[in-house]
Design a binder for these strands. Structure first.
Length: 305
DNA sequence: CCTACGGCTTCCACGGATTA
DNA sequence: TAATCCGTGGAAGCCGTAGG
């Protein structure tokens, strides 16, 4: 099974990571960041399972769509010839209680957002979107609680929830769903994928300025800033992980572009942003290799291709 | 071990952008 | 508009690696 659309970390998660590492985050933002990581890990775990399916279906992961001015986000969309599975993955952990359509941590009154609301809203939006594209496929929504250490007490039996213990059977069911895709289904998948947006309008990051952010490259593996450059390789002083300098520079450039989308990318800015790259020419070469150069002389800058 | 080669660095002059 | 600034491209040389 090849994913028609692969999952990548969201812009929000990447931006929060940068801010977390470069200036620290207030409690609420830090929790948000850790929740995003946890959620993402759950989704990747589920991808690892659906990847082994052999049935005739198209899988679109990680979609951010918008219909009628409303944004909606889909973890996994599986297109079969006669139906669509709409899947939301939750990586909640611990004992929880379901009471009057609300979700609580057991023994506390801390309330979590009920994923049922989210997926129902999602289903409505998707239904309308499909209709506008001329399709009438029935949608089967499911919320998958993928963490084996998750328990939800007192859930009515007819809610579309699936737990880790039910997952193997669910995957079998997916694999045995009869389906014969046609070129039209692939066109639909292509259409939906083309509507995917990379930036959500609803993400709000904490305020930050260039000046207050810690400069420098961090290790791609352990996120430590104690890296040094030796012979075109960046070596981490903490975990000894090695990364080619060019790759490290581009990682920093993408990060800079994400945090400061309005700023011009120039050799000097990136030189300062990276901090540890000894040669300006090295940065210039790397930028020239991976980005598109605009302007000449002192006014030249680079843009993402 | 030697050699060839490719990629990287250093150095410098050019010339367009910036600023008053 | 003129003077100054500074990023860039090219030349030349260096270094590491692969292959004999």
């Amino acid at each position: 099974m090849d994913f028609y659309k692969k999952r990548t970390p969201s812009a929000e998660m990447l931006a929060l990571r940068s801010l977390y590492l470069r200036m620290g985050l207030a409690d609420s933002d830090r929790n948000q960041y850790f929740n995003l990581i946890k959620g993402y890990q759950g989704e990747v775990l589920f991808d690892g399972m659906t990847k082994n399916l052999t049935c005739d279906c198209i899988i679109l992961n990680d979609l951010l769509l918008s219909f009628g001015g409303n944004e909606f986000q889909i973890d996994t969309l599986m297109i079969y010839s006669a139906l669509i599975y709409l899947i939301d993955v939750k990586n909640f952990e611990g004992d929880h209680l379901y009471d009057k359509e609300k979700l609580y941590r057991l023994g506390s009154d801390y309330e979590l957002k009920n994923p049922l609301n989210q997926i129902q809203r999602c289903e409505t939006q998707l239904h309308q979107m499909l209709q506008s594209l001329g399709w009438k496929l029935p949608i089967h929504p499911s919320v998958i609680f993928i963490n084996p250490d998750f328990t939800l007490y007192q859930t009515p039996i007819d809610r579309p929830f699936l737990y880790r213990s039910q997952l193997n059977r669910f995957l079998q069911k997916l694999n045995q769903t009869p389906s014969k895709l046609t070129a039209k289904h692939w066109q639909l998948a292509e259409k939906i994928a083309s509507l995917h947006q990379t930036q959500s309008k609803n993400t709000k990051l904490p305020a930050y300025t260039y000046g207050q952010l810690k400069k420098g490259n961090f290790c791609e593996k352990c996120e430590s800033f104690s890296v040094t450059v030796k012979d075109r390789t960046m070596v981490c002083g903490t975990c000894e992980h090695k990364e080619p300098v060019g790759a490290a520079i581009m990682r920093a450039v993408r990060e800079f572009g994400l945090l400061f989308p309005g700023e011009r990318l120039t050799t000097n800015i990136i030189m300062e942003w990276c901090g540890i790259i000894p040669s300006k020419k090295c940065i210039q070469n790397t930028l020239g290799k991976h980005l598109e150069k605009c302007g000449v002389g002192r006014g030249s800058y680079y843009v993402f291709k």
